[in-house]
Amino acid sequence: MENLPMRLRPATTFAALLLMGLPATVSAQEAPLRTALDGTFAPHAMPTMSGGVEGFNVDLVNLIGERLGREVELTSAQFSGLIPALQAGTFDFLAAPVTVNEERAANLLFTEGFMDTNFAFVVPTDAPEYADLDAFRGKTIAVNRGSAYDSYLAERADEYGWTVESYGTNSDAVAAVLSGRADANLAGATVAAWAAQKNPQLALSYEIETGLVWALSFRQDSTEMRDLVDRAIECLKIDGSMAELSQKWFGVEPTTGATIVTPTPGFGVPDFPGYAEDDHQPSCDGLAS
């Protein structure tokens, strides 16, 4: 079979072996990890010219496979269908970045956070420094209509006195900043960093901490696999791989203590359902089968 970019392979490899009459002796430990994400969420996953997908989460899940000594079968699909497919057993876990909240944690099992789910402003490179939200008073801020960032700005418009201009896509909101029709754009921190990295006329500005994280999601009966992938994420944090991915895809050097470079005690996200206290020490030893 032709090697597709970033190990994007059909999800029928194992079944094909059985149909060809090959011995069905592949153990669960040796079987590929079946995972999926939304391939249109740049810079976490986006199409390549050759028909594959690339991005932060594509690299992340392949590094996890390397640390565990397992092949990865990565499927690109619409986000709305990912969780139902996971629950149906189509995938072992989701490589998509999913924000951990009470509702989701009541139905899914999560690894520890691999990144903080923060908001960030993008401004022109010649703009003054914005040290806090007060600095945006009286400014016009462009945002993707109907997004969490749109709601955040609208709910605080009276308090901070900014004008919110909503656009059909975040790309249109970024274009408003580039054309001078808006003073700033608010989006997810990684999307904002990507926009600044791709547009020399833009700069990453003030970041709003939400207290939430992105994590990889599993079915609730997949505790053993969740814990194993959690340990692989810890390995990537302590061996410098996560910091390298941040530089590569966001152009950002993680700060000390940020979730992307700081292992979380136990397994899962503390204070949410599914979290398991454990005193294991983060390590890269003993992960591969």
Rank of each mutant, 00 (worst) to 15 (best):
P282F: 08
V143Y: 10
A105S: 12
L19E: 14
A24W: 02
H44G: 02
S76E: 10
S241N: 03
D279W: 07
V164R: 15
E165M: 06
A131H: 12
C235M: 06
G52L: 05
A16Q: 15
A154E: 13
D221F: 01
A135F: 00
L212Y: 14
L245F: 11
A31D: 03
P254R: 03
A45G: 15
E66Y: 07
L68R: 03
L17S: 10
A96Y: 01
D271V: 08
G188M: 14
R156V: 06
F218L: 05
D285Y: 10
D158A: 07
E103Q: 15
G168I: 12
L17A: 13
D278N: 14
K198R: 14
D126V: 11
T35E: 02
Q220D: 07
D92Y: 01
R181V: 04
A120I: 04
R9C: 00
M242W: 03
A154T: 15
M49F: 13
T48A: 01
K237N: 04
Q247G: 14
S50Q: 15
M20H: 12
A85K: 08
F91S: 04
N101P: 07
T25R: 13
K198H: 13
P265G: 04
S217F: 10
P265Q: 13
L82P: 10
L18P: 02
A120C: 05
T35Q: 00
E2A: 01
G113R: 09
G146W: 10
D59R: 04
Y167C: 08
L287V: 08
Q247M: 15
G113F: 07
V191A: 10
M115P: 08
A36E: 03
Q220R: 15
F91Q: 04
E165F: 09
A175E: 15
V174T: 07
A276M: 11
T256W: 04
P84W: 01
V177T: 01
I83R: 00
F121I: 08
Y167K: 11
V213S: 02
S205M: 05
V100K: 02
G180T: 14
A176E: 12
A189V: 09
D183F: 01
